[in-house]
């Protein structure tokens, strides 16, 4: 493990986010207490005692199979999921960039940008000032006054990415969104995330795209059944994960 320096050799800044033995449980029966069939539903233990530390300027990647608890961990780190046990300490509330954005189909691009920025903690004035830059980065100038229901899904995804990264959150959590847009936009997204980590932000991203993980991240965690299986340099951890995944596939075929 390389805890003292980033994978690219730069010295690490102070800790911005710290998880101590975090457990996340889903209790399906609690949510639907009035329905009889749910009596038998069992709690799902999605994250089992994960501890991690992330520093300023780091881009931490989280990889793992479907259902390994990646998204639950990310939600817990964002303070959006109550944790059963453990603690999440942070310098600021992290911003989460997810695949299913909170946009309003009836409202125009501009209105959505302002609302989105304000939901992430900006004042109205600050939000209005960011509009031109966000429109430019997302490349949606031609549609900005039209309601979002008329936009293509790619445009919407680009807009949401541009909003979340433009508010310059101290800690940005990214859930599987680097797959959006065309090749050119993906390239610019990667560049922007790197830029953010240089400007003293912390980025934590979940992705299945191993190539992207290796390109962007300074450190990678492999999550397996809610536990950290390996942690370290992106190349090494990704290789371990790939080897494990292909062995598993062979076993299942035979």
């Amino acid at each position: 493990m390389d805890a003292s320096s980033g994978a690219r050799g730069a010295p690490l800044g102070p800790i911005t986010l710290q998880a101590n033995g975090v457990h996340v449980l889903y209790h399906p029966e609690r949510r639907r207490a009035f329905r009889a069939e749910s009596q038998t539903a069992k709690a799902v233990h999605a994250v089992k005692g994960v501890s991690l530390e992330v520093h300023e300027g780091e881009v931490l990647g989280i990889i793992g199979a479907n259902g390994s608890g990646k998204s639950s961990l990310l939600m817990a780190l964002a303070g959006l999921l109550p944790i059963e046990q453990g603690q999440v300490m942070a310098l600021a509330y992290p911003a989460l960039l997810g695949v299913r954005p909170a946009i309003r189909q009836q409202l125009s691009g501009t209105d959505n940008i302002i609302l989105g920025c304000m939901a992430l903690g900006l004042s109205r004035k600050e939000a209005v000032e960011l509009v031109p830059g966000i429109v430019k980065f997302a490349g949606v100038a031609s549609h900005v006054d039209l309601p979002l229901r008329t936009w293509s899904s790619g445009m919407k995804a680009r807009l949401v990415f541009a909003i979340s990264t433009s508010v310059e959150p101290k800690i940005l959590l990214v859930d599987e969104v680097l797959a959006v847009g065309d090749a050119e936009f993906r390239k610019r997204s990667v560049r922007r995330l790197r830029q953010m980590s240089r400007s003293s932000s912390t980025v934590i991203m979940v992705s299945h795209k191993m190539q992207q993980i290796q390109k962007v991240c300074t450190r990678v965690i492999w999550l397996d059944h809610g536990e950290i299986r390996a942690e370290g340099r992106p190349k090494r951890v990704v290789q371990m994960y790939k080897r494990y995944a292909s062995n598993l596939a062979d076993e299942m075929d035979s």
Partner: peptide, 11 residues
């Protein structure tokens, strides 16, 4: 109606 916002943003 604001479920998505609640899932993504802390406030």
């Amino acid at each position: 109606v604001n479920r998505r916002l609640v899932r993504l943003v802390r406030f």
